[in-house]
């Protein structure tokens, strides 16, 4: 059967001598070419796939960055509207931030965001007393603070993961610093609210 267009009457002594190639009865290329052209028109060609492969990484990072921007903005707005007492914000100066806040930060990030000692001391003190101060807050305020911190920490983790893949991305770095500052604002607000004996 396979030898229909070969020398089928030739005698062989081994199956290994059977022809591996069998010429198709008609040229199949035109059909293949037509399908390729159709796929290309549908944006499904190899060039697109290659471009997609190359661009995939940066596209993913852009999406992550965009998501992080939205998250950071949402947290910022929420803090501004509902958490912060007027004039109570004392964000840490500069771009210093603690790497321990998000956990698992890469060495690259540690180098970029290593906190100055004053910032770290302040944050550690706030974190240490957080549980006790939260307990002193009204229930709804406590829930708000916990939800806010959870959102902030999720943003930190997402940004750290994105920076792990693209450590030199300035936008992601800035967003991460902003997120650390947001965390500091929340911690400060909790501290002041509990001192004043009021809710948030």
């Amino acid at each position: 059967m396979a030898s229909a267009n070969d020398d089928g009457e030739r005698k062989v002594t081994s199956l290994r001598d059977l022809p591996q190639a069998v010429t198709p009865p008609r040229d199949l290329w035109s059909g293949i070419e037509a399908r390729i052209a159709a796929d290309r028109r549908a944006g499904d060609g190899v060039a697109d796939e290659r471009r997609a492969l190359v661009q995939g990484r940066s596209a993913r990072l852009r999406w992550i960055a965009a998501a992080a921007v939205v998250a950071a903005l949402a947290v910022g707005i929420w803090i501004g509207r509902s958490l912060l007492p007027t004039g109570a914000v004392r964000a840490p100066s500069g771009t210093s931030a603690s790497t321990s806040a998000g956990g698992g930060t890469s060495e690259v990030l540690q180098a970029a965001y290593v906190a100055d000692p004053k910032y770290r001391r302040q944050r550690e003190a706030l974190v240490k007393s957080l549980e006790a101060r939260l307990a002193a807050l009204p229930l709804d305020s406590r829930a708000k603070v916990i939800a806010s911190l959870a959102t902030i920490h999720k943003s930190m983790q997402d940004l750290q993961a994105a920076l792990g893949r693209d450590p030199s991305n300035a936008l992601l770095q800035e967003l991460l610093v902003n997120t650390y500052q947001d965390e500091m604002r929340v911690l400060t607000a909790v501290h002041e609210a509990s001192d004043a004996g009021r809710g948030i």
């Binding site: 059967m1 396979a2 009457e9 005698k11 062989v12 002594t13 081994s14 199956l15 290994r16 059977l18």
Partner: peptide
């Protein structure tokens, strides 16, 4: 094995048997 045949046979015959 080498798939060697005891007696030489025509390609067509072998192909038909395989089919």
């Amino acid at each position: 094995g080498e798939w060697t045949l005891e007696t030489p046979l025509e390609v067509n015959e072998i192909e038909a048997a395989i089919a």
